[in-house]
Computed example of a mutant assay.
Amino acid sequence: MKIVKTLNVPAEFFYQQVINSVLFDIRKSTGETVKEHQLTNYSYVKEFSKNSRAKISIEAAQKNELYRFNTSTVRNDFTVSYAIKALSDKQCEVTYTEEMISHGVLQKANDMMFGMFLAPFKKKQLIKMLASMEAAY
Rank of each mutant, 00 (worst) to 15 (best):
V9A: 06
V9H: 02
P10H: 02
P10R: 06
E12G: 05
F13L: 09
F13D: 04
F14Q: 00
Q17G: 03
V18F: 01
L23A: 01
L23G: 01
S29G: 00
S29Y: 00
S29V: 01
S29C: 05
T33V: 14
K35T: 06
Q38Y: 04
Q38N: 10
T40S: 15
N41S: 10
N41Q: 12
S43A: 13
S43I: 04
V45D: 08
F48Y: 14
F48C: 04
S49F: 08
S52E: 14
A54S: 11
I56L: 09
I58N: 01
I58V: 07
Y67R: 03
Y67G: 01
F69T: 05
T71Q: 07
S72D: 15
T73H: 05
T73M: 04
N76V: 09
I84L: 02
A86D: 01
L87K: 06
S88F: 02
S88W: 03
S88K: 07
D89M: 07
T95V: 11
E99K: 12
M100K: 12
S102Y: 02
V105L: 15
L106C: 07
L106F: 13
K108W: 10
F114S: 14
F114Q: 12
M116C: 12
F117C: 08
L118S: 10
P120F: 04
K124W: 11
I127A: 05
I127K: 14
M129W: 13
S132Y: 04
S132E: 15
M133E: 01
E134S: 04
A135T: 11
A136G: 07
